[in-house]
Structures are given as C-alpha cells and as structure tokens.
Design a protein around this nucleic acid. Structure first.
Length: 600
DNA sequence: GCAAGGTC
C-alpha cells in the first residue's frame, strides 16, 4: 500500500479525488490501491526548554543550548496549562498506523521549506524508516497533480531543503527562547518580555514610526489660490510656488490681477490597470481599510469561508493564477450575475475579453491567489459576507478592463504662475465594480475643468491664501504595518541581504496576523483608534534592543541568505555554530541591558 | 511564562 500525506485535509481530499479514491475513513481516504492522509500544518514542534533539563526561568540555564533538539506534539492552552492538542495526537496516531502498513510514502506537503519540515518532523518523530518519494507541484489542478505523480522525485533530493528548514526552526528557538528569558530575568518583571527574529523588528518599526511622528515639527507654508471663471464655470488654480511666510504670500496675492491668462493646457489620458487578485495580505489590508477588521479577524473569517468551501486556500502569498485556473474564471464570473451589488458588472464581463494581468503561472508559488470557488453561499454573517464580497468583487475587478482617466493640467498667469489640475474618469473599467470614491481628493483638486485654450483671458472671481502644514509620516495601522512587513528588507543597503529577502519580507502570510496579536498580548503595543502605537513597556523594550541585530529586518535577510546556501548544499554545522555564537552574545548582552530598564 | 512556523 502506498500512503500519500498532504499538508492539510483540503489538499489530501483533492488528490484523492483526482485518483478516484472515495472510501472516506476517519482521518484518511482509501481507494485505487492508495491511502490518502494529511497533517494539520505543523503537528510537531521543537520541545520546550524543560524537556532538555532547563527547568524554570533561571539565569543559571542561560544560554540554553540543547545538545540535540527533541520534537513534541503541538500544544494547546487549557485551564490546566499547555497540553498535547488532542486532535493532533489523534491524527498523528492515524498517520502512524498508515505508515506502519505502508510499502512506500509519497510526500505531498506544500512544495516549500516548511512543507518539507512538516513531513520530516512527523517521519522522524514516528521513527519511520519506510522509503518515501516527493510530489512537487505548484498548482493543485487535476492536470498538475497527475503530472506531478508521473514525475515523483526521490525523497533524498530534498534532504538539503529539510536541513535549511530545520536550521530555521532551531535558530528561531535558540535566539527567541534565550533572548526572551535573558531580558525578562534581567528586567526583573514578573511578566514575559518576549523577543524574536520577527516580532522584535516589527515592534521596532512601530516604535520608530511613533517616535518620529511624535517628534515631528510641522512647518507652515502658504499658497495663493485663485478662482478663474469660464462662461460661468468656476475652477480653482493654486500658485506653483509655496511660500514660507504669510507676508510673502500676501505680497503675491496683491499682484493677482482682475483677469488671468491661460498659458498652457495639457490633457493626457492615463490608463489605470486593474488591481491584482488578492493574496492574504492585500485582503487583510483592504478589509482593515474598508471595514476596520484586524488582520486576525480577516484571517479567521476567511478560514471560515474556506472551510465552508466558498473560497480557495486563504494563506497564500501569490496574487496570480495559472492558465489552468484561469480557464475556469468565466464560469465563476457567470455565477455572480445575480449579485445585488455588482451583478451588473459580472454581466458585462461575461461578454467581454478578460484582462489577463493576474494570470501568470510563474508567479504562482505554493498556492494561487484567493478566488471564490463557485459554491453558492448562504447564511453568511454580515462580516463573512463582507469578506466574501471583497474576494468576489476583486475577481471582477482583476479581469475587468483598464480604467481610463483624463488628467488635465492648466497653467495660468496672473501676477504669478498658477496650476489647475483635474481628473476625469472617461471609462470606469474595473472601477465600476465597487464604484468607490477616489482616494482622498485635495480641496483644490477640480473634478472637471472647463475647455480653455492657451492665450484665453478669463476673469478672476476670487482669490485667497491657503495656509498649510507639512505632515509627518502617519502612525502605523494594521493595513500599513502588514504592507511594511511584506516589503521589509527592500531598503537594506547590502545587495545580497536585500536579494535574500526580496520574496519574503518579515514573517509569512500565515503568521503576520499572529505576530501583531503577540505584540498586543505582551502589552508592547495597543490599538488607538485605527492606529497601532507602542505602550510604555514596548518603548522600554525598544530602547534596550533598538541598536541590536535582533531588532532589524537584516537579521532575517542574513539568515535567509545562509539558509538558501544550505538548501543548495552548504554546511549545516557552520551555520549552527554561528547561531550558537550569536545566541551566547545576545544572551549576555540582554542579561546586562535589562538591568537598566525603566519599567513601572 | 518564552520563538516562528503551519493549520483546524
């Protein structure tokens, strides 16, 4: 019997379906001489410190450097503390029974570093010795699965990938556990002051932005505004020059004449392509902007829709689909012609040529962009419906035509030079789906401008001075923080480190919401209206670590670079030794630094 | 009491 193991039930069932296996059992499916089973993500984790004899939180134990790491069943919090997750334990037993009967295992966990780790941790924990082969596919359509099974790889081909994954896991444990205990113990607080490769740079970003925002000194500046009139249609034009003082602006205001002369008219059409399909992060950002949902709420709602088979896999980092999935899009769109809000646009799209901007198989990673499945939803809560509509609406937008705008700029002379600008949407294209108002318009932006010609002279019907202030960068909110985590590392000076991080950023789509929740739980940050601001505890921790590597995105860049080298065959022990050295150093440093912390 | 990673 061959056993196929997937990362999660949805994939296991999908593969079983392709094989035509239908005999559903508890935790697996049988048929056609195969058995299909699955994990629930990571079933196993590196064991807690006490499993290596490091009892309590004690300076004597630091740094904790286990000789050999152990694996433990994933834990769940109960009133009696942490216990083995019963669902995980059960599934692990099912997998063990199946592996014991197997002649061969086929590894069908997600095609990536963590997918490899999920399987290997199970395999080694169960002390399994059966031969295994690897299914390596980047799309879960029938054709891709069949093709993948015709091209199964030897399991050992992915040993180096496992090595890099194992190093990632151990390194996070070593640095995170030791740094956390070192700081908590030296600060002498009863509470946990956690630190980690991802959470600490995230905290640092929030704190740095907050401090910059608070210390920002706004500068006043002044502009002169006039209102020319063309046959009864008045519009606004603003001085090209900004003035530092009100006096300068007033002097120029005096120069404005009763009439003005049109100097130049420039009208340019601009094509605005539709947005890409949603990945998890972009959807979390949009839901935060539109509905004020937190990243965590959006993920929960989306997971719920996914479990009800209404949307495709949610924790994706890709905003593209392959041609195979695209083939099913017209039918999906046709399913929305009755939709209250955007049925009309769905009807338009059924007879239009679809925009293929979001279609690119090369940019599909483990999972493709989020789409509705075509199943009809019923009895959704308002919040679920809102998220579902964002997924469906985005699909309609993404395959819609460009929005065509005309951008007009008129330069005008009257004592000084003025500029009037206006934007007119000529063809709404994808913008018709949600019909949202444009991003906040400046007061002096004109909706439409009258037709004028160079040389034309118009009366000036009003003039005034605008008093303005330079603005600081806004505080982070969940949407802008998620974006910043995604793009973290883009500004690293070192070319190689920047390159190593370019496709990842900080954290992963699946973990970013949890990282924000951790910072909230530690009382490092708080929600203030829609913003995320540091607490006094958060600022104190930031002050201790801000100049250390653990608070910089570069640390992830450096690790990613070394992990990639390991994946292509470099020495594992050399990196492990570096991590030990670093762990010793940061532990020592924090044992000292925490003493000076000013905590209430 | 602690990391980051995956998922129900």
């Amino acid at each position: 019997m061959k056993v196929i193991i997937a990362e999660k039930p949805s994939v296991g069932r999908e593969i079983a379906k392709v094989f035509g296996a239908t005999n559903k059992k508890d935790g697996y499916i049988e048929g056609k001489g195969y058995t299909f089973t699955w994990a629930f993500g990571h079933l196993l984790q590196l064991a807690a410190p006490q499993e290596y004899g490091f009892y309590g939180w004690n300076v004597q134990n630091l740094p904790m450097l286990p000789q050999k790491f152990k694996l433990a069943i994933r834990k769940v919090k109960t009133k009696d503390g942490l216990v083995d997750d019963p669902g995980v334990k059960k599934q692990l037993n099912i997998i063990k029974t199946l592996f014991d009967e197997a002649t061969e295992i086929i590894v069908a966990t997600d095609a990536g570093r963590e997918g490899e780790l999920i399987f290997r941790y199970i395999y080694y924990y169960l002390k399994c010795k059966k031969p295994f082969k690897r299914l390596w596919i980047s799309s879960q359509t029938d054709a891709a699965i069949k093709d993948g099974f015709r091209n199964l790889k030897p399991g050992a081909d992915y040993d180096s990938l496992f090595n890099s994954a194992h190093c990632r896991s151990q390194s996070d444990w070593l640095v995170g556990m030791n740094a956390t205990q070192a700081l908590s113990l030296s600060a002498g607080t009863r509470s946990v002051l956690s630190l980690g490769r991802v959470q600490t740079p995230t905290l640092a970003m929030i704190c740095a932005r907050y401090i910059e925002h608070k210390n920002f000194v706004p500068q006043n500046f002044y502009q002169v505004v006039i209102q020319p009139d063309k046959d009864g249609q008045a519009f606004k034009a603003v001085s090209v020059t900004n003035f530092k003082t009100k006096e300068e602006a007033e002097a120029v205001l005096q120069l404005v004449e009763p009439t003005c002369t049109i100097e130049n008219v420039e009208a340019k059409p601009r094509k605005e392509p539709p947005p890409l399909l949603h990945d998890l992060s972009s959807l979390q950002q949009e839901a935060n902007k539109r509905k004020g949902f937190t990243a965590d709420q959006t993920l929960t709602l989306l997971q719920n829709l996914y479990e009800n088979k209404l949307v495709t896999y949610p924790r994706t980092g890709s905003r593209y689909i392959g041609d195979d999935v695209f083939a099913g899009v017209p039918q999906l769109i046709a399913g929305f012609t009755e939709h209250v809000e955007f049925g009309k646009q769905a009807i338009i799209l059924t007879s239009a040529k679809l925009n293929k901007r979001s279609v690119n198989a090369k940019k599909v990673t483990d999972h493709h962009a989020i789409l509705p499945t075509g199943e009809k939803p019923n009895h959704l809560t308002d919040d679920q419906q809102a998220i579902y509509d964002m997924v469906a609406g985005r699909m309609l937008e993404a395959f819609h035509a460009d929005c065509i705008k005309e951008i007009t700029k008129i330069t005008i002379l009257s004592g000084t030079k003025f500029l009037a600008s206006g934007t007119v949407i000529q063809t709404a294209g994808w913008r018709a789906v949600f019909n949202d108002k444009d991003e906040e318009k400046k007061d002096e932006e004109n909706a439409t401008l009258p037709a004028v010609k160079p040389g034309e002279i118009l009366p000036v019907t009003a003039k005034d001075i605008l008093e303005k202030q330079t603005k600081p960068k806004p505080l982070y909110n969940e949407a802008s923080l998620l974006k910043a985590l995604e793009t973290a590392g883009k500004e690293i000076d070192d070319d190689e480190l920047r390159q190593a991080m370019k496709d990842s950023g900080l954290g992963t789509p699946a973990t970013r919401a949890a990282i924000i929740e951790t910072l909230l739980k530690r009382d490092y940050i708080a929600r203030e209206k829609k913003n995320l601001v540091p607490t006094s505890t958060g600022l104190s921790v930031y002050n201790v670590v801000k100049d250390q590597r653990i608070s910089q995105a570069e640390l992830t860049g450096a690790w990613e670079k070394r992990l990639e080298e390991i994946r292509s065959g470099a020495s594992v022990s050399a990196f492990q030794e570096e991590i030990k050295v670093y762990t010793r150093a940061i532990t020592q440093e924090l044992l000292q630094a925490g003493k000076g912390m000013a905590l209430k």
